[in-house]
Design a protein around this nucleic acid. Structure first.
Lengths: 166, 166
DNA sequence: TTATATTGTTTTGTAACATAACATTCTCGA
DNA sequence: TCGAGAATGTTATGTTACAAAACAATATAA
């Protein structure tokens, strides 16, 4: 448990150290949130281009991935797992159903809820989707410098997320 | 966690790992973009709460930080530096000007452009803002495990961004 | 000069995200 | 068992971020 303010913040790359007593005006390169946002935008950009042919957006991709690996979950379960408000999940799921990739089934255990499943066509689609994702991911790993660096990045991001795992 | 690539996968040199065989459906935890997005949302959430009292949003914060450290830049320069379309920058700058924090000055060298500066009140505001940011950032650093981990995170994010620095 | 490019701006459209209200169904304590 | 309250999916609505097109004023280049 290191004190945060105790140690001088080391300039990351050619950034001036801050000497004054009050907090220095942060340089862009020192702002975690800023770097995080820019990196996320870059990654999503690559993702969107990679999936333009399949006409699949990041949120749709994540929903199909969850349904594929955990079929039968309730709509609200998947929504909350992905941090999507269930109100906004409806249209998203409508789209997947309209394209014949996934379907809602009435659960007889709880007639309010819908359990979500892939259609046969959806299963085929997920295969193509996974291949496209793999090459996208490989591109990112290359940029990072290898799988080891990828794992380190994931570990650090997990630390930020730790207590909101849900 | 690392189900799909195993420990030893090093396809990074441009060789596709699963070219012949189909790629596995990715688990959420293995998707860089997903983790990145969730972490970014968490960080922005903390940022927004930290700055609710000052009524300052991330984009406004970044603009003030740039103007404070590099006064006199042109509007379009700051916009592109932050990845904000100049069309969308107008309303943002209007807001800062309306609050008396920053101002546009007609540059006589180029009468089309506006050079951006802090007002005296803006300079005072930036001091408070920097202090608030510092505690926000310290919170993140604590979550990461220290300044060393923060630096490692920044380094990794920079690798993703490397060739779009601008 | 004339043609072309840049700067700031307005307008407009789209997508992401949140909140409130509702009908249906379930749960559970009185 | 009933009835109050919660959960589920849905609709409707508003807000915000972001992108693209067009424009006037000004600068630059041929």
């Amino acid at each position: 448990m290191n004190t945060q303010t105790g140690e001088k913040t080391k300039p990351v790359s050619g950034v001036k150290p801050n000497a004054s007593q009050g907090a220095a005006v942060p340089a862009l390169g020192d702002i975690i949130g800023y770097k995080l946002r820019r990196a996320q935008l870059m990654v999503f950009q690559d993702f969107i281009e990679s999936f333009s042919r399949l006409k699949l957006r990041p949120a749709e991709f994540s929903v199909l991935a969850v349904i594929a690996t955990q079929p039968g979950l309730k709509q609200s379960e998947i929504a909350s797992m992905l941090g999507i408000k269930r109100a906004n999940f409806v249209a998203l799921m409508d789209g997947l159903e309209r394209r014949g990739l996934a379907e809602r089934r009435k659960a007889d255990s709880d007639r309010r809820s819908h359990s979500l499943h892939l259609t046969p066509e959806g299963a085929r689609f997920v295969k193509k989707m996974s291949a496209v994702w793999q090459s996208h991911e490989d591109r990112l790993i290359t940029r990072l410098g290898g799988t080891e660096e990828r794992d380190r990045l994931i570990t650090l991001l997990d630390r930020l997320l730790d207590d909101e795992e849900g």
